[in-house]
């Protein structure tokens, strides 16, 4: 069981002396087939991990871009089963997927059933933006039973006690939400991210992946200089709003290529 999950990938990136690149894409946006093509394209362009997003009616951690993508995906008929199809497609493309989902989606399917389906599709684990470990008894049991990673979030507002508590329940990596706020591109990385990474490093040996706000090669390089992984969501999703699907996929490839170069620049610039 210890060989499963995201750790082999993150360890390999670490051995290469670089941060991992993690790309978030919601399944079903703009439609199921295109979203899966986009995930495969992101893998081919240099993403190390794909975060498969589950469109939800009430995405309270998301900014306008991902909210709109979720609404479109739902209007176009996405289903939870498509999450597992996408996860398997990412695996077949030679990469690994983790699923990011609001908790009610998992609870409604049944926590153990969701975990079993995800494991069967080759998914590595779950990122749970609105589930903290305090409420996660059932998920902790199911993830243990099915060998899945549990990726909880830490935030700049987390106290040191909370950082210790939350990371003690994480497996795979820790999602470091770099700024207070919702998802969406930001002009600068800011100093909250390195400070939070430093505070989190003091309490855990797990890889720390930073998300919320990264959209450019330069920002990716900056974050890669202090984090083990760089998570890019809204900036990637935005490419798929293009009227011309092929153009959108091409733009996505190009963006991911730039970001992949960025995460390889970070370490050299620091060491």
């Amino acid at each position: 069981m210890s060989a499963t999950g995201v750790r082999p990938i993150l360890d390999r990136c670490r051995a290469e002396g670089r941060a991992a690149l993690i790309i978030y894409l919601p399944v079903g946006f703009p439609d199921v087939q295109t979203s899966i093509r986009a995930m495969v394209a992101a893998v081919e362009a240099g993403a190390d991990l794909i975060e498969v997003g589950v469109p939800y009616s009430d995405p309270l951690m998301d900014g306008p871009v991902i909210q709109q993508a979720a609404a479109t995906a739902r209007a176009n008929g996405v289903h939870v089963d498509d999450v597992f199809t996408a996860t398997a497609a990412v695996r077949d493309a030679g990469a690994t997927a983790v699923v990011m989902t609001y908790w009610n989606i998992v609870m409604r399917r049944g926590v153990d059933r969701f975990a079993a389906d995800l494991a069967a599709a080759g998914g590595a684990g779950l990122i749970t933006p609105d589930l903290v470990p305090d409420e996660a008894t059932e998920w902790i049991e199911a993830s243990d039973a099915h060998g899945l990673d549990r990726i909880f979030l830490v935030a700049p507002s987390s106290t040191d006690v909370r950082l210790r508590e939350v990371t003690s329940h994480c497996r795979g990596f820790v999602y470091v939400a770099s700024t207070m706020g919702v998802t969406g591109a930001r002009a600068t990385v800011g100093d909250a991210a390195p400070r939070l990474v430093e505070r989190t490093r003091a309490v855990t040996d797990l890889p720390l992946c930073v998300g919320l706000g990264v959209s450019t090669r330069e920002q990716a390089a900056e974050v890669a200089s202090f984090a083990d992984g760089v998570i890019v969501g809204s900036a990637a999703v935005r490419q798929l709003f293009a009227d011309d699907v092929e153009q959108g996929l091409a733009d996505l490839r190009s963006l991911v290529g730039e970001l992949a170069a960025g995460v390889r620049e970070g370490r050299t610039s620091v060491v």
């Binding site: 609105d130 589930l131 935030a155 987390s158």
Partner: peptide, 25 residues
């Protein structure tokens, strides 16, 4: 994780709880 159950504040029977982002905890 330790075997002790996570603390579950604010429950009415099984209902209630705190299903929010860590940032708000």
């Amino acid at each position: 994780p330790s075997t002790e159950q996570p603390r579950v504040p604010g429950r009415f029977g099984p209902f209630g709880g705190r299903y929010v982002p860590e940032a708000l905890i």
